[in-house]
Design a binder for these strands. Structure first.
Lengths: 109, 109
DNA sequence: CACACTACTTCGCGATACGAAGTAGTGTCA
DNA sequence: TGACACTACTTCGTATCGCGAAGTAGTGTG
């Protein structure tokens, strides 16, 4: 189900969104998400999600050696990833506004 | 973690919200949620969630026999439930706006 | 040389939403 | 009378997912 994915799989969306404007590697995306406000995201969750998105054919990947530490596995959105980002972004907004309706005082009803 | 609960357990919030203005029994709450827009919620999920909320001490319950079918197990918010509704409602809004920020075009950055 | 930070992987756990199936009461329609 | 549909709830097994813990490995600092 789509809704099922949404009820939990918000991290997918978040990772896709974090990659929209710029390629990034796992550790960096982790920082982006935490900076953005998802302060409690675990590192393993992000790495796992990125791998899942890659396996789903939504991301491309390439390894870049780094002078200041271990190599970095970069991820980038491919067309399918962008499509998915847009699609599930819409789903999210729909879901969020449904929840807002539910939470809004129903005095007017 | 709180965030963990949020990432998936939105159904809890939805059920609490559905009970805010009026007591309800499972099947009815299922309809409320579906009417509200959560069209794909499974019945077992709702029943399970209500039982979980009850076990967590957030709901009271009472059985009412019905003339037009099987008995109905009503649930009602108790003070703890109302507190939780408000608390996790806030958490939800915070989370939702974080997601909106992430999804919003970051051109201004 | 110990430690901290970066960067990623693997493993196992717990929570949970779901589908399927079952039980049971009422009403309808032939 | 019997088949069926709708209401109302329960139980069971499954899949997914986010997470913590642990491990590997490279770099820089005290």
């Amino acid at each position: 189900m789509d809704t099922t994915q949404l009820l939990k799989g918000v991290l997918d969306l978040a990772c896709l969104a974090a990659l929209r404007d710029e390629d990034g590697y796992g550790y960096d995306i982790l920082r982006r998400l935490r900076t953005a406000g998802l302060t409690e995201v675990g590192d393993a969750s992000v790495y796992g999600t990125l791998r899942r998105l890659f396996n789903a054919g939504l991301l491309t990947t390439y390894v870049v050696p780094s002078d200041e530490g271990p190599h970095r596995k970069y991820y980038a959105l491919n067309p399918a990833g962008r499509a998915e980002l847009q699609r599930s972004g819409k789903t999210w907004h729909g879901f969020a506004s449904t929840m807002d309706d539910l939470l809004r005082e129903r005095e007017t009803a």
